[in-house]
């Protein structure tokens, strides 16, 4: 067997078949209604947590496009999240730009950064790519601390950001307004991402994920779509980072360590690799489960968290999408 045939024969990573990538119409409507109503019955701190769930959901979704879509691994998403957060923070606090306007700029800068990072990353795949992105994640906090940039970044101290008020005199608390603002942004990003993955570009990325050589023989520019996937993923992560900075009202280098990148990776696995709606489940996991673990045992919260994680992976190897399919099966039976 020739070397080429071996490449052709290698098994791709297991992901969600494309036709199951999004939710159906009814399920989507139910989820949107729940997300709209939830803050009306929650306390302010819970609203803040829910805002963070949406923001992390955007970042998990971005990783899902990269890994579930194009088959490339990344443990470096925290670096793009940080870049987006600092872009928004600096534009708002140093440049006096409106918070909403900083988001497309953060997304654009991170798209370019991700695309450029994707170029050398073309030579790597699988665990080697994971290692390269890992290095990026570990380097980022140190770069942000460099005193060349201190005039803008605030160095080790970071920057404090003022929280935006609801516009047009709407009778909403700042937390409530920010929640709905983030909800609209995340829904727009979700719809665009589903569109992208169902389009010619998305099919090209998934073809590369499944078999690079065959994709290339069909005319797919493998290098182009791999770097584009990196760019898109980083751009969306940057928007999440910008939103995160506004919600937390603070950016500092040590908020964006490798731990964040690993959390986003866990979120993707728990949500279901390649299943975009799972992103919000994964995000809820990384926001709430550490708290739950701490509730069980303060001293051993890390161990409890690990145990919960292992149980989930053992019981639900395909993440939350497995539950969704089971429920879908029940609904089908009930209808009959």
């Amino acid at each position: 067997m020739s070397a080429l045939q071996e490449i052709v024969d290698t098994q791709p990573i297991e992901t969600t078949p494309k036709k199951y990538m999004a939710l159906g119409n009814y399920a989507s409507i139910v989820v949107v209604i729940l997300l709209c109503v939830a803050p009306l019955i929650a306390k302010n701190f819970v609203i803040f947590q829910m805002t963070m769930v949406l923001i992390y959901a955007i970042a998990v979704l971005a990783l899902n496009i990269l890994t579930g879509g194009s088959g490339q691994f990344s443990l470096g998403q925290s670096a793009f999240y940080a870049l987006g957060a600092y872009t928004s923070a600096i534009l708002m606090e140093v440049g006096g730009v409106n918070y909403a306007l900083t988001l497309p700029i953060a997304g654009g800068i991170c798209f370019i950064a991700g695309y450029l990072f994707g170029l050398p990353a073309l030579r790597l795949s699988g665990i080697y790519l994971a290692l390269a992105t890992f290095a990026l994640a570990t380097a980022m906090p140190q770069l942000l601390k460099l005193h060349y940039f201190e005039a803008w970044t605030g160095g080790v101290q970071g920057l404090v950001i003022t929280k935006p008020d609801a516009p047009f005199g709407l009778p909403l608390s700042q937390d409530m307004w920010l929640y709905y603002f983030v909800l609209v942004v995340s829904m727009a990003i979700y719809v665009a991402s589903v569109n992208l993955l169902k389009s010619r570009s998305g099919r090209a990325m998934m073809a590369i994920r499944d078999n690079e050589i065959a994709a290339s023989a069909m005319g797919v520019d493998v290098a182009l779509y791999k770097t584009l996937a990196f760019g898109v993923s980083a751009g969306i992560t940057g928007v999440a980072g910008g939103l995160g900075a506004i919600a937390v009202q603070f950016v500092a280098p040590d908020s964006y360590t490798i731990q964040l990148a690993i959390a986003l990776f866990l979120g993707m696995v728990v949500g279901g690799v390649g299943w975009l709606p799972g992103s919000i489940v994964g995000a809820a996991f990384i926001v709430f489960v550490p708290n739950i673990a701490e509730h069980f045992s303060k001293g051993l919260s890390g161990a409890v968290f690990g145990l919960i994680l292992v149980l989930i992976i053992f019981l639900l190897p395909h993440g939350s999408r497995q539950i969704a399919y089971t429920v879908q099966g029940w609904v089908h039976k009930l209808r009959k």
């Binding site: 297991e14 078949p17 389009s199 570009s201 099919r203 090209a204 998934m206 073809a207 065959a214 994709a215």
Partner: peptide
């Protein structure tokens, strides 16, 4: 083939070089 894609999508990828698009318009 592309094992995780449907028959339809496999064949659609075949048409890649006969069509064009960009990621912004696609999104």
């Amino acid at each position: 083939l592309f094992p995780n894609l449907s028959v339809l999508d496999n064949v659609r990828v075949g048409a890649h070089s006969r069509t064009n698009s960009d990621i912004v318009s696609d999104s």
